[in-house]
Amino acid sequence: MLGLLAYPIANAFDMSLQDRQLGVSGKYIWFGNFIELLTEDRRFRMVVANSVLFTTLSVAGKIVVGMIMALILNARIKFRGMFRGWLLFPWVAPTFVTALTWRWMYDGTAGVINYILLSLGLIELPIAWLADTSTAMGAVIATNIWRGFPFFGVSLLAAMQAIPADLYEAADVDGATNWQKFWNITVPGVRTTLAITTILSTIWTFNDFQIVFLMTGGGPAYATHLFATYAYKVGFEGSRIGYASAISFLLTPILIVMIMALSPLIMKSEQE
């Protein structure tokens, strides 16, 4: 089983050292691809900046929206199970469906988001959300948050339900405010789960392909290109497969850091 994944990764590294083109075998240029990427390729610099922005804001948004969802569902509400299942829908629906639906809703001329904002008088002119460099990234991030927050919500809810109720009762006796209870009981109680879900989501978000590819194709003017979409563009639309390998191989350091952070957390959660 190790071979199943170790071999492709070794293969990726091997290829990133070549000047290979699609359909033609290349020759070794050693670290030429990496040097070009890091010193000459201005688009790659945009890709790195985009990926960091996309990942940070998406994951932060998912944490906040997911945490509020968990708090609502953890309160005494009716039909909790039903609502929990319902709010999980964005996470269950196929990502390509989400991406296409939101692309349609963001449409500059006939999109429903412009329609609603215009009718409410919040904007005066329709906005070409996905075609404007100043709004495209935000629009893509919003979609990504919509898709990913239920994972946080449901995981955090499970963790909240494991917090003993007498902790809250004791706090009530001591006259603690809701805010104090949240920071001193709830947050410590869900800390491990929150850390694990954050790391998992960071890995998935950093490596996202579908949402950006289907919504903007990386545009306008590279404003939303991420590692995966840029590697695809260079490798399969531009046929520089060796160079594309180098791009996606540069994902490994981040992945290794994330996995190293994750490992002790998993052990901790297994002990709990």
Binding site: L200, S248, F249, I266
Partner: peptide
Amino acid sequence: TLAKSVLFMYLIPSSLLFIPLYII
């Protein structure tokens, strides 16, 4: 160790593997 690494294998993203898989 192998049992732990199974999870890590699951986390290796397709964006890293798609080019080598294409060649293989």
